[in-house]
Amino acid sequence: MILTVTPDPALDKTYWVDRLVPPAADHEEVPVLRARRSMREAGGKGINVAMFLARMGMDAVAMGFLAGHTGRMILRYVLEEGVTANFVWVAGENRTTVTVLQRGQEFAPLVIHEAGPQVPSGSTARFLKKYDQAAARAEYVVLGGRLPPGLAVDFYRDLAHTAKARGAKVVLHTGGAPLWKGMEAGPFLVKPDIRDPESLTALPAGTEDDILQAGRRAMELGVDMMLVSHHVTGDVLITPDSIWDLDARIQLSEFRNLMGADDALVGGILYRLAEGDELEAAVRFGMAAAVASSEAEEKLCRCREDIEREMARIEIHRRPLT
């Protein structure tokens, strides 16, 4: 079983429009964007990974905090995807993430994020008890996304310690201080959220030197692997002795929706590792899953055939880490 934790789940609302900025209107007229399609799904990094794994036929469990009507909708969508739901309920309302995709410019969407509900200490204690039981039955534990108000910055570090003590491998997919704190527990795989400017260094990240420096620091902390998105079609995987350059031969114009591609990448790697693949084959599958998800209008690709078709477009080069 693969256990995923999403402390701050979201209801993802996606709109497809012809033009993001409507033509200059009469000053008495309110500009209206007409969506030619819209969609609602459960979201948040851990939940996305769980939904991807369930589509691959794996036993995936989603944990986290749900609140209000939005929480009930998230729960419904999670269950519909075949994921086992094991959430703790708190007062308030879960966040909604809005994504507006413009025809022809799908690689640069408009995204609106909002804050999630406050998590009281009693609910955290309830969660930790459930988590302890679930982690004991997990092969991998995926900790993903930002922390909602009320959770301590070392929340992920403590969860990672518990999971490791229970014999599970930990995947950490977040940014900022919770990422660096979490790395102290020596997770198996780290995927920094590079949208967070403090993820890699205190400086704006992005150059290869930044990535390598962050990778070396992660290895020093006991992290087994660090996966970093370098540019839209390329990722870098750092292991204690190697740098792997992962590239997808794909044009920007082929992207239909980049949301969730990172989660398909993590999900794809875990799926193949759990099935017994070697790391290189698992990474290739993960990259192909990310590409297939980017090419689908929906957040995540629907089926394995789409992923297998993309496998040939993934290039992997390995060189020593010096």
Partner: peptide
């Protein structure tokens, strides 16, 4: 079946049981 594990524990106080019932409907 619904793979929803919403539950309480044997030592969960009744005040929390009511809270969870209210929130989960």
């Amino acid at each position: 079946m619904r793979k929803d594990l919403s539950s309480v524990e044997t030592d969960t106080p009744i005040s929390e049981v009511i809270y969870i019932m209210e929130h989960t409907e």
